[in-house]
Write a protein that binds this DNA or RNA. Structure first.
Length: 496
RNA sequence: GGGCCAGUAACUCAGUCGGUAGAGUAUCGCCCUUUUAAGGCGAGAGUCGAAGGUUCGAAUCCUUUCUGGCUCACCA
């Protein structure tokens, strides 16, 4: 792009001029005595003591005049105005300063004072380059009007924001806040679980056989071993091996990979927290996750009420708990338990619900998605799913077709999935073999039988409750983000 | 995969009925010693996402295509 090189050329010329003047534009060392926030917080003290301060940061606005200039310096803690006068720093140094552009990193030595217009500033005594930038940042101007920040020419192109996240972070301050919140949430989850004597573990991302969820995997290859490996779609089967191995409470913060569609709720790689607790069932897990998420809400949102996507969410305990069948009764006005398969298929036809697979479990799932899911705004545990769509969960004692499983929905987002884990090796083998049958019939999301996992279970797995939480979606909820792309630094994009 | 919308200067955007492209900011030059979307004067900067077509002539009309957004469906 010729025009771009025109802008870059101008900066490279300045760089050259600095070198000719004997200035190192990329020195190895920087000095700093204070964070900018320190000065903003205790400005009066700094002014009174007339103590020199040394600041580092990046030039974020620049007003050059003939013999005096102003710019704003930004470090991680904040922004402050810098005042620099030719007669204070000398002709030569002022010429050096004039080679500055927006985006350069500089070292400023000076004293704190107020300008005539009343803005706290640094009166520069000495000035050094730390990094000369040769590519111009997009121009965004910012002013404060009645206490509110108003932006001009804001950097809004979503594609550029996702592809060049470093620019998005620099130019849209709320983006940084979102990711700081993300970090806090994950930290709190770890602390919460650590305090309950869970231990954090790591299990393979590269797996010879994938499982633990219904999804298509990414396939890769180990050259020396000459074998195909899969990027994990879930951690479940390995974490259960650890329970078999004697750990009683384990969790993993895990990147999982699913080779399927992308939309505002799905990114090919995403973050889950999976946890397993021996001698617990799905009721215990419900209590655990309810406590964890309400604690996070208190900390992050400052209370149990907050807004998401235009709706007021109230996380006050206890959350509603209702079986999928009772919810269908409530919202679709039908009693699944008293209907035959034929009647259910008819019902779907009447309501224009398309069925690809006409089995009991699948139909219940479809009716639920159509009638119930859109109504689930407030936090709710949807419980007791059909066995057919839950091959790793234990059946209810009173109904072999229903399993002890729940999903958490908040504001229509499915943010968690949990069950009382199936620990009967004979039943587990039958269910996994049934999956293989489905796969042979063309269901690419169904898994192959993991013989090693079954063998492990044959040695004995204690009764266990397990949970998978969609971390990205939880972050979306607490940061009022509409798309998963807004809570992942570098979301997957097509190559250009 | 379907529907709708968008893509024009580094950024944000105009561009009428088809007549070979504009503004603000940014950049460059000059002036400017407390400015703050600094200001004044002047200058340069574009493969109009890409390809093909219609036309004397296309940013504009048609077709195809790429990228992104929103949304519906599906998977999770």
């Amino acid at each position: 792009m010729q025009n771009e090189s025109q802008l870059i050329k101008a900066r490279k010329e300045k760089l050259q001029k600095l070198i000719e003047m004997g200035v190192n534009p990329y020195p190895a060392k920087a000095k700093r005595t204070n964070l900018i926030a320190d000065i903003l917080a205790e400005s009066e003290k700094f002014i009174k003591e007339e103590k020199g301060v040394v600041l580092v940061g990046r030039i974020r606005s620049l007003r050059k005049m003939g013999k005096v200039s102003f710019f704003h310096l930004e470090d991680k803690s904040g922004k402050i105005q810098i005042y620099i006068r030719r007669d204070d720093v000398g002709e030569n140094n002022y010429t050096i300063f004039k080679q500055c552009d927006l985006g350069d990193f500089v070292n400023v030595f000076g004293k704190v004072f107020y300008t005539q217009t009343g803005e706290l500033s640094i009166h520069t005594e000495k000035f050094c380059f730390l990094t000369k930038s040769i590519r111009p940042l997009p121009v965004v101007k910012e002013i404060e009007e009645e206490g509110k920040k108003v932006f001009y020419d804001q950097f809004v192109d979503k594609e550029l924001r996702y592809r060049k996240r470093y620019l998005d972070l620099l130019l849209n301050p709320e983006v940084k806040e979102t990711f700081i919140t993300r970090s806090k949430i994950i930290k709190m989850m770890r602390e919460f679980l650590d305090n309950k004597d869970f231990i954090e573990v790591e299990t393979p991302i590269l797996q010879p056989q994938y499982g633990g969820a219904e999804a298509q995997p990414f396939i890769t290859k180990h050259n020396k071993l000459d074998m195909d490996l899969y990027l994990r779609i879930a951690d479940e089967l390995y974490l259960k091996r650890l329970i078999i191995g004697g750990f009683e409470k384990v969790y993993e913060v895990c990147k999982d990979f699913r080779n399927e569609g992308m939309d505002r709720m799905h990114n090919p790689e995403f973050t889950m927290i999976e946890l397993y607790q021996a001698y617990a069932d799905y009721n215990d897990i419900m209590n655990l996750v309810e406590e964890m998420l309400t604690e996070i809400a208190k900390e992050i949102s400052g209370g149990l009420q907050f807004e998401y996507d235009g709706a007021q969410i109230d996380m006050t305990k206890p959350w509603k708990r209702a079986s999928i069948i009772s919810l269908i009764k409530e919202y679709a006005n039908i009693d699944i338990e008293k209907m035959t398969l034929e009647e259910m298929i008819d019902f779907c036809k009447q309501n224009e619900i398309e069925l690809e697979i006409k089995t009991y479990g699948k139909i219940i799932d479809e009716i639920f998605k159509h009638f119930v899911e859109p109504n689930l705004i407030q936090p709710i545990f949807v419980t007791d799913y059909p066995k057919e769509i839950s091959p790793l969960a234990k059946s209810k004692p009173d109904n072999p077709d229903i399993v002890e499983r729940f999903e958490i929905f908040i504001s229509g987002l499915e943010i968690g999935n949990a069950f009382t884990e199936l620990n009967d090796p004979i039943d587990q083998r039958a269910r996994l073999e049934n999956q293989t049958e489905k796969r042979k019939l063309g269901d690419l999301s169904a898994n192959e039988v993991d013989e090693d996992f079954l063998e492990a279970m044959e040695y004995g797995m204690p009764p266990t409750g397990g949970l998978g939480l969609g971390v990205d979606r939880i972050v979306m909820l607490f940061t009022n983000s509409h798309s998963i792309k807004d809570v992942i630094f570098f979301p997957q994009m097509r190559s250009v």
